[in-house]
Each structure stands twice: as C-alpha cells, then as structure tokens.
Design a protein around this nucleic acid. Structure first.
Length: 302
DNA sequence: ATCCGGTTTCCTGTTT
DNA sequence: TAAACAGGAAACCGGA
C-alpha cells in the first residue's frame, strides 16, 4: 500500500548523517566524540550501505540497549535528540550518566523526571529498541502508518507529539520552558495515549532545520561546536564564523549537498537581512547578528 | 498543475 | 591578491 520513496530514504540518510551516529568510532574518548561526530567523522558515512538496508540503517550499533555502555547510552541520546531537532542543552545530560542496563530499568516516569517532556520521546525510542532491536518496526508502527510518517518527515516518531524546528521558529509554539522542563510542571502524556493537541502541530518547515536555526543551534551547543562559530556579543546576538568552510561543509552534510561552500551559505545568510532574521554587521568579516525575527537564541529564552 | 518559501547556484562588481 | 561581501537572476525542491 505504501511505497517508501527515495525522498524518504534520502531524508533518513540526511538525518543520520546529521546525527553523526553512523560513524563514531568506538575508540575515541567521550571528551572528543561530540565534536568529532560533527566534523571529521562525517566523512566516513557510507551512503550506499545505508540505502541498501532499510531496517538496519536506523540504528547501526548494538541494537540491544541492555548491553550498552555509558557512551552508547549517550550516543543514543544524542541521536534521538538530533532526530527530533531538540536542543541538546535542553536536557540535563548528567541525568543520563547510566549504562544500558540502568537505562532499561528506567520507567516512563523516570524518563520524564530526568528529561521533562523529552523524556517521553526518549522512552518511546528506547522501548522501541528494546522490543525490536531497532527503530521503526513495532506494532505501533505498522506499514499503514508509513504514509503518515512520510508525511510527518520523522518516520521513527511513534511519539505523543513531534518536535520540529518550526516549533522553535513559531513564536506561539516556541516555549522551551514549558516543553523541556521536568515533569513536575508538565502533564506527562502516557506513551500509548498521544496528546491530540500536540500531534496536530502543523509543519511549517517541512524540509527540516532552516539555516539560521542550524547556525543558532551550533552556537547554543558548545559540545557540538568545536570552534566553528563563536559569540562575539552574546546578549546582542552577535556571532562570528571561525571556520566558515567547516560550517558550510556541515550544513552541506545536513542537506545532503557535498558541494556547499561558505560563499553559497553566506548568500543564504544575506537573504535573512531582508526578513530581519539577521542584521548586518558592517565592516566586520564573518560577523552576523540575529535580528528581531530570529527566535530561540537569547539566554532568557532557554 | 501550480504556487510558494527557502534556499542553491552562478555571476559580476566592490570592499577589506 | 585572496577572501569576504553584496545582491540580481534563475533554478531547484518539497509541501500545500
């Protein structure tokens, strides 16, 4: 009934490339893995391998969470957040200083306690892995659901609601506090009873993160920002590219476009001036400033 | 089928 | 001189 389109496959390639999950070598230390997953190890991705195996590509490491090391737990955490475009700084990573066995012993409540509403996403992801050894093949995710999931652009989401970048960019929906705070101030939806309100959130950004959001998220995630972009004036939203070509490459990876350059990226940046997402900073090379229509970069918004 | 937003690509000229 | 900036024009792509 449903056909898995090449677009769909491509999307997943992009998601997994962006997450860097496929290529993190087991030998690197935790300290340097985050930057590594965003930079050099991107280049190791084997796209043809990905396309050749629909089921296994969704999670390429040990599919048994019970056996995971602390690092693998952390890696899964990173990937799941990346997949749902959730700001990694929004959850306290220290709450997940656990190995796979400990992780698997966590209840749904434990997850929401540890990560607020994001906990439900993590819980679903883990439950799925535990039951199936991989994403995407549960009785909650039947073939009939695939079309819906293609439409939603996030096929692994058997979630109560979907986190999207439009969530950040829409002032009415953008509410990091209420969305990512611990469960004490949140109604925690049961995993099997999705909140219809949340699931009806409309996509305004079907192709994923906008460039300015991508840039913002690098700035807001120091662990993902190995000297790529730097705040010049945090309170004013002024930032500077330190490694302009590296950022362009990263953006290209995210968009599955290996020929992205800073020259082309910067053209897209200049289009933001008119929309007041960025403001000009005259006379300073590689320096930009967030404008009135850019959301989610202020410290007070976090 | 068509329109649209958000880029991407290419280009020429200017500034640092 | 290279790298970055500026912005026009057209193409592209996926969603509505």
């Amino acid at each position: 009934m449903s056909v898995i389109s090449s677009t769909y496959v491509q999307h997943w390639i992009m998601v997994l490339q962006a997450s860097g999950v496929m290529s993190i070598p087991a030998t690197v230390s935790v300290d340097n893995q985050l930057p590594a997953s965003w930079t050099t190890h991107y280049n190791c991705t084997d796209v043809s391998m990905m396309t050749s195996n629909f089921t296994s590509r969704l999670w390429t490491q040990d599919p048994h969470p019970q056996n995971w090391t602390k690092f693998q737990v952390w890696e899964w955490l990173q990937q799941t957040l990346d997949m749902h475009q959730i700001d990694a700084t929004s959850i306290p990573f220290q709450n997940f200083d656990l190995d796979g066995r400990q992780l698997c012993n966590m209840s749904f409540q434990d997850f929401t306690r540890a990560a607020g509403s994001v906990g439900s996403i993590l819980f679903q992801s883990l439950t799925d892995l535990k039951w199936n050894g991989q994403y995407g093949q549960t009785d909650m995710f039947t073939p009939a659901d695939i079309k819906t999931e293609i439409d939603a652009d996030f096929p692994c989401s058997i979630l109560p609601f979907k986190e999207e970048s439009s969530f950040y960019s829409n002032p009415e929906l953008f509410d990091i506090k209420s969305s990512f705070q611990p469960s004490s101030i949140l109604p925690s939806p049961a995993p099997s009873s999705p909140d219809p309100k949340r699931s009806q959130v409309k996509r305004h950004n079907p192709r994923g993160t906008h460039l300015w959001e991508f840039i913002r998220d690098i700035l807001l995630n120091p662990e993902r920002n190995p000297g790529l972009i730097k705040w010049e004036d945090r309170s004013e939203g002024v930032f500077r590219f330190l490694k302009s070509e590296a950022v362009a490459q990263l953006w290209g990876k995210k968009k599955n476009n290996s020929s992205m350059t800073y020259e082309k990226l910067s053209r897209a940046m200049r289009y933001y001036y008119k929309r007041e997402i960025l403001e000009r900073v005259d006379g300073r090379r590689l320096v930009y400033k967030f404008g009135r229509n850019a959301r989610g970069w202020r410290e007070s918004e976090k």
